[in-house]
Design a protein around this nucleic acid. Sequence first.
DNA 1: TCTTGACTTAGAGTGCGCTCGAAGCCGTAG
DNA 2: CTACGGCTTCGAGCGCACTCTAAGTCAAGA
Lengths: 135, 135
Amino acid sequence: MKISDLAKRCGLSAHTLRYYERIGLLPYADRDRSGQRDYDASILSWIEFLGRLKTTGMPIRDMLLYAKLAGSGKATFSERREMLEEHRERVRAHVADLEACLRVLDGKIASYGEAEERMRDDKRNNANTPARART
Amino acid sequence: MKISDLAKRCGLSAHTLRYYERIGLLPYADRDRSGQRDYDASILSWIEFLGRLKTTGMPIRDMLLYAKLAGSGKATFSERREMLEEHRERVRAHVADLEACLRVLDGKIASYGEAEERMRDDKRNNANTPARART
DNA sequence: TCTTGACTTAGAGTGCGCTCGAAGCCGTAG
DNA sequence: CTACGGCTTCGAGCGCACTCTAAGTCAAGA
């Protein structure tokens, strides 16, 4: 598979794939006789997992550490598990944060909705009541 | 309230507070007779709300638009509500993504745990069984 | 044969969100 | 009076994660 094919399949640009290889996030890809990268489809599952780490906010330097451990075989299973467990906790905490934020947004949206409602009422009644406090 | 007091209370640095004022995310603060910013405590709730937007990944340019609308009174209630509704949808989608990632992490962690378990068993049995496929 | 287009490399540039430094002013404690 | 800490402004610098450019190579199709 050429780099542009892999790019299409994994949703990263060819630029980004080369960048990831350069920094060590992707293993050095085999080159064909004209020097072009020729990827094995098995790289896709690794890229997909990296995408999960990225989505969940893991910085590249941590992904690099994980990648290095993953290249060292069975001896690093427990270290990798611990990394992922710590990361999972951070992600869970972040999700909890986001859910709290969502509740705040819900409240704010509702209060705008109610304010708009009142404004429509005022208009319909053509009443000259004093302005209400903003929220 | 001086900038360092506000910084302590809201968790942003004085540098960041000045930066936010400079770009228009915070209203221009009153200065005392020696030119130093003197904040009213009411700024705290606005900063807290900005923090919610930031936590949920809203870029500063969008916060700036929201801030501009919020400075324009009642006429922009519906526009602000629509902004927040769209943002809320993005956040909900992101939370769903994160939850999918958490399930992947759970699976990965479990498989490391099982592999470690098997390695301990193998050691205890002192058996020279062939290596298993890595996951 | 010539053109086209995708690939290669090293390295520069971009956008975001801060973060810091320099130089100078102000008010209070000693 | 002086020293000190904290404030001011403006602008430069930083860390991250790409993103793009330039110059060149290569293989296949007209």
